[in-house]
Amino acid sequence: MKFVDEAVITVRAGDGGNGCISFRREKFIPFGGPDGGDGGNGGSIWLVADEGLNTLVDFRHQRMFKAKRGQGGMGSQMYGRGGEDTIIRVPVGTVIYNVDTDEQIGDLTEKGQRLLVAQGGKGGLGNIHFKSSVNRAPRKATPGTPGEIRELRLELKLLADVGLLGFPNAGKSTFIRAVSAATPRVADYPFTTLHPNLGVVRLGTDQSFVVADIPGLIEGAADGAGLGIQFLRHVARTSLLLHLVDVAPIDGTDPVEQIRAIEEELSKFDPELLDRPRWLVLNKADALPVEEREQVAADIIAQLGWSRPWFLISAISREGTLEVCQQAQRFFEEARLREEEAAAEADAVAGLPQG
Rank of each mutant, 00 (worst) to 15 (best):
E110F: 03
F269K: 12
T192W: 02
R260P: 00
P309F: 12
I88G: 01
N135W: 02
A49Q: 01
A236I: 11
R185M: 12
G305C: 08
V247H: 05
Y79N: 13
E340A: 14
A160Q: 01
H129N: 12
R293V: 11
L198G: 03
R233M: 03
E219K: 11
E6A: 14
R60A: 07
P34L: 00
N18I: 07
Q104W: 04
D347M: 15
V281H: 13
P353V: 07
W279C: 07
E340W: 01
G37K: 03
L352A: 10
A160R: 07
F23T: 06
E345L: 14
L240N: 03
G199E: 06
A343F: 02
P30F: 11
L159T: 04
W306I: 04
R24V: 10
G75M: 06
R233P: 00
G17N: 01
R260N: 09
R202D: 00
W310K: 05
A328N: 08
Y97L: 05
Q207H: 09
L244A: 06
L266Q: 09
I176W: 09
G126P: 08
I313W: 02
R318G: 04
L240E: 02
D223C: 00
A287W: 09
D107P: 00
S133G: 13
G14S: 05
G73Q: 06
V247N: 01
N98M: 03
F331P: 05
V57A: 14
P353W: 03
G70C: 08
V235H: 08
D254Q: 05
L203Y: 12
T174I: 06
R12A: 11
G73P: 00
E291H: 13
L266V: 10
E292T: 14
E51I: 02
E26M: 11
P215L: 02
R60N: 13
R81P: 00
D275Q: 14
F191Q: 01
G144A: 11
I9M: 07
A346G: 05
M64D: 15
Q327R: 15
E151M: 11
P215I: 00
F167W: 11
P30V: 10
D254H: 06
I45K: 10
A221N: 04
V4H: 03
L47Y: 12
H234Q: 08
T192S: 10
L266R: 08
R318D: 13
S132R: 06
S132K: 08
A285L: 08
I214A: 04
V349C: 01
F311N: 07
W279A: 10
D100E: 15
R136P: 00
D58N: 09
G42T: 04
L56D: 02
G36I: 04
I176Q: 05
E292V: 05
V117N: 06
E264Q: 12
V235W: 07
A141I: 04
E294N: 10
Q258W: 02
G73A: 09
W306S: 07
F3T: 04
N54Y: 07
D275R: 15
E333Q: 14
Q77A: 10
D85M: 01
A181R: 14
G72W: 05
I313G: 07
Q230T: 09
A13T: 09
I301E: 12
R150L: 02
A287Q: 14
L288E: 09
A141K: 08
R81E: 15
G226S: 06
L227Y: 10
D223R: 14
G19T: 02
V48W: 01
Q71E: 15
